[in-house]
C-alpha cells in the first residue's frame, strides 16, 4: 500500500474578476512507505495547493487523494491523524513559548502533556535545541529555530506521512543545513514517508529518493534524480546535467525565477 496516492487531482480557484486559475491540473503521484519524494517548482506552480489538498485544507474539484489507502476527502479525520505538515510560515502562537506551543500541538492530536513532555525533551536534545530556550516566547527565536520547533511539533504526533512545504525557504545557510539534517534524521529514525515541496535543487537532490517537476499545476516528470537528469539532458552522450540545468530545461525557469517572490497557488 502506498503512503500517499493522488490520481488525476484537479483544483481551480475563481479570482475576483471571474478569472479561473487552474492550480492543479490532473496531478497524479505516489509516495511509497518510507520514501521521500520531492516536488520542485517555481512560485505559483501549485506546490502549496498540492500540500493543502493532501492535508485536507482544500477540497479537490476532481480526482482521488488516498493516504495509506484511506480517501482523504471522504474520511478527513482518519487521514489527519496519520499525517502532519511543516510549512514555510512558522504557524505558532508567537507570544507562547516553544514548550507551550508544542504541548498545545500535541493535545490537538490527543497526546497529553504527560505523554508529550518526555518526547519533547528527547526531540529537543536530538536537534541540539537548548532546553532553557524552550520556555522563551517563539517570537524571540530565530527563523531557523522556529522551523526546528515546527519539525519537532510534527514529529511529536508520530506522523506516518510528513508534508514539508518549503521548510528551509528564507533560512540562513547554517539553519538550512541544520533543518535538512533534522529531516534526514526523521527519515532514518522514524520510518516516515515524506513529501517535500521546494525550489531548492540541491535540497531536493540530497534528500529525495524521487523528484518531480511541477509547473502551472502539472507534474511534468517524477523519477529518481539521475533519471530526471538523463531525461532532460541536451547531449545524451555528454556529462549528466546538474539538477538546476535539468529544471531549467524542463520548465524554462532559472533558479532565481523559481525562487522569486510571487503568489503561490
Amino acid at each position: 500500500m502506498k503512503a500517499l496516492e493522488l490520481q488525476r487531482v484537479e483544483k481551480s480557484f475563481k479570482k475576483r474578476r471571474g478569472e479561473v486559475v487552474k492550480a492543479l491540473d490532473a496531478v497524479s503521484l505516489s509516495v511509497g512507505k518510507g520514501e521521500v519524494v520531492g516536488i520542485l517548482g517555481p512560485n505559483g506552480s501549485g506546490k502549496s495547493t498540492l500540500v493543502r489538498v493532501i492535508s485536507t485544507l482544500v477540497t479537490p474539484d476532481a480526482g482521488r487523494v488516498e493516504v495509506f489507502g484511506v480517501d482523504a476527502v471522504s474520511h478527513p479525520k482518519k487521514v489527519q491523524r496519520s499525517m502532519n505538515r511543516v510549512s514555510v510560515e512558522a504557524s505558532f502562537f508567537k507570544k507562547l513559548s516553544a514548550m507551550e506551543n508544542l504541548l498545545y500541538g500535541a493535545k490537538l492530536y490527543g497526546v497529553t502533556s504527560r505523554e508529550a513532555r518526555p518526547l519533547i525533551q528527547e526531540i529537543l536534545d536530538n536537534i541540539g535545541f537548548a532546553r532553557k530556550r524552550a520556555t522563551e516566547p517563539m517570537e524571540h527565536l530565530s527563523r531557523g529555530m522556529q522551523q526546528k520547533i515546527a519539525l519537532a511539533r510534527a514529529l511529536l504526533t508520530s506522523p506516518v506521512l510528513m508534508l514539508l512545504d518549503e521548510p528551509t525557504t528564507g533560512l540562513d545557510p547554517r539553519s538550512k543545513k541544520d533543518v535538512q539534517a533534522f529531516i534526514r534524521r526523521i527519515r532514518e529514525a522514524h520510518d516516515s514517508s515524506i513529501l517535500l515541496c521546494t525550489h531548492d535543487m540541491q535540497e531536493a537532490e540530497e534528500l529525495c529518493d524521487r523528484v518531480g517537476i511541477m509547473v502551472d499545476g502539472r507534474i511534468l516528470a517524477l523519477e529518481e534524480p539521475e533519471g530526471l537528469k538523463r531525461r532532460y539532458a541536451s547531449d545524451p552522450g555528454g556529462p549528466p546535467p546538474t539538477l538546476e540545468e535539468t529544471f531549467m530545461a524542463a520548465t524554462g525557469y532559472s533558479v532565481e525565477e523559481a525562487s522569486a517572490e510571487g503568489d503561490e497557488g
Partner: peptide, 23 residues
C-alpha cells in the same frame, strides 16, 4: 509509535478540549 490512536476517540477529543482551554 503513533500515540493518539491508542486512545478512544472521545478521550482524544477531551484532551484536545483541554488543549484549547490551556492554550
Amino acid at each position: 509509535m503513533h500515540n493518539a490512536p491508542n486512545k478512544p476517540l472521545w478521550l482524544s477529543e477531551m484532551v484536545a478540549v483541554w488543549g484549547y482551554v490551556q492554550r
